[in-house]
């Protein structure tokens, strides 16, 4: 596969390490009353759609950027890629 790196253009997927569902960016608030349940969902429950999926790829043999790649898991068509750090901060303070 070729990953359209937002800075570097098309790069072979062999340069990347795959992580999975981009929801891993949405780390729950550890101080919430429901923190334990929230983290349980966060850690163990992932979507695994047959179709369009937002997922995390790390450009390990490249510029070390984490990307959010939108990919159709059925066709491997890639609909876009963004730099994770450009997205609104999602981590709990």
């Amino acid at each position: 596969m070729l990953i359209p790196h937002p800075l570097l253009g098309l790069r072979d997927s062999q340069e990347f390490t795959y992580l999975g569902d981009a929801s891993l960016m949405n780390r729950p608030d550890p101080s919430a009353v429901t923190a334990e349940a929230d983290f349980c969902d966060y850690v163990f429950l992932r979507d695994n759609p047959a179709g369009v999926h937002r997922e995390l790829w790390f450009h390990e043999q490249g510029d070390r950027s984490w990307l959010i790649v939108t990919r159709n898991t059925l066709t491997h068509e890639i609909l876009g890629a963004e730099l994770a750090r450009d997205l609104p901060a999602r981590g709990a303070k």
């Binding site: 780390r27 950027s65 730099l83 750090r85 901060a89």
Partner: peptide, 14 residues
């Protein structure tokens, strides 16, 4: 290292 970059870029970019 990869996980630290993940924490830095994806969780706490601020």
């Amino acid at each position: 290292y990869r996980n630290m970059e993940f924490a830095h870029q994806c969780l706490w970019p601020e």
